[in-house]
């Protein structure tokens, strides 16, 4: 059994805890949060071991791995403390607010030779993976443009009292929402060489941006556009759409479907014209379901990487660090 600890019991942390707790190869031996309320409530309902300081947990429990879901500004300290102890680390996105901090975490994880993973769960969504497979097989030909969009209704009024509305703690649409899309763009076409015309727009928030618009320039002349807005009430929940334009066709991909348009018949049963592939055929079953197969799949992947000693990881710190570097480029560009 792999002994796991969970640090941070916010929306993501509690969901990770629940999924991890059902994993057949995992024993959750410690859980930690700084909120007395959360711990008090949980403590009254179950006899799991709860801690209000992660260092106490690390000292008391002999852990193999940790899942960290605390505000981004706290990642570096907690991640490094865990890495120093030789633990395998899964940390929520966004990875880091500071490129130098991010680099330090990447290097330390490599030095300690531990499994390191960041919670960009879209890479475990069947439809998003199908799009990558189609690109890799060159089915849509030479790619010349990609657009990444995400809309949702997170902030609809000026008020907001959590870390998500504070820039200094990693709040804002760029880190919280756009990072998911940027991560997918890199997954599909690699790192951009430059960004331009970046607009970080405040719609309702005071301290953070509610929308991000930018142009990205990738190698081989691929252009890209980003349009992200978390203050759009017409969307019930976060909706990501990526469109990839190639000389032989295009792909429109969302969480639940991958639509492929080809100019000529292709391989793997893809036909000329529209090919619509749905989540029902693209999704692999999971042992336990909470909010989406991808959340279970990414945890299972992390655990399997540990038990099988797999070194490469689709969501490694290094990969998430690239996303942070693009965020940094966007911030820099928006300043002018």
């Amino acid at each position: 059994m792999i002994k796991a600890g969970v640090i941070g019991l916010g929306k993501m942390g509690i969901s990770h805890y629940s999924i991890l707790n059902t994993h057949p190869d995992v024993d959750v031996v410690g859980v930690c949060d700084s909120s007395k309320f959360m711990l008090g409530c949980l403590g009254k309902l179950s006899d799991a071991r709860y801690y209000n300081d992660y260092r106490k947990m690390l000292d008391a429990c002999s852990l193999d791995c940790v899942m960290i879901a605390t505000p981004t500004s706290s990642h570096k300290k907690i991640v490094c403390d865990c890495l120093e102890r030789g633990l395998h680390v899964f940390v929520e996105k966004p990875f880091s607010l500071d490129i130098a901090d991010g680099r330090e975490m990447v290097d330390l994880a490599l030095e300690k030779k531990v499994i390191n993973q960041v919670g960009f769960h879209n890479k475990f969504v069947g439809a998003f993976n199908k799009a990558r497979e189609v690109i890799e097989k060159n089915a849509i030909g030479e790619i010349y443009h990609i657009t990444g969009e995400a809309y949702g209704q997170v902030v609809l009024k000026p008020k907001g009292s959590t870390w998500r509305s504070k820039k200094s703690e990693g709040g804002g649409c760029l880190h919280d929402y756009a990072s998911h899309v940027i991560d997918l763009l890199v997954y599909y076409v690699g790192m951009p060489e430059a960004v331009s015309g970046t607009i970080l727009k405040k719609i309702y928030s005071h301290d953070v941006e509610d929308a991000v618009y930018s142009t990205l320039l990738f190698p081989q002349g691929i252009s890209g556009q980003l349009a992200i807005n978390w203050s759009d009430e017409s969307y019930r929940k976060m909706s990501i759409q990526i469109t990839i334009f190639g000389k032989k066709g295009k792909i429109v991909v969302e969480r639940q479907e991958c639509k492929i348009f080809l100019r000529e018949n292709g391989d793997d049963g893809l036909e000329k014209g529209w090919n619509i592939l749905y989540t029902t055929e693209l999704t692999k079953p999971v042992w336990f379901y909470l909010r989406g197969e991808e959340y279970s799949a990414q945890i299972d992947y992390f655990i399997k990487c540990i038990s099988e000693g797999r070194e490469e990881n689709v969501n490694s710190f290094e990969s998430a660090h690239k996303t942070d570097m693009i965020i940094d480029m966007l911030l820099e560009d928006a300043r002018y």
């Binding site: 509690i14 629940s18 707790n21 059902t22 309902l45 179950s46 336990f288 379901y289 909470l290």
Partner: peptide, 12 residues
């Protein structure tokens, strides 16, 4: 339900 199930909070 599934969150509570995973957390094993049967009392709820």
């Amino acid at each position: 339900v599934d969150l509570l199930l995973g957390l094993d909070l049967r009392k709820i």
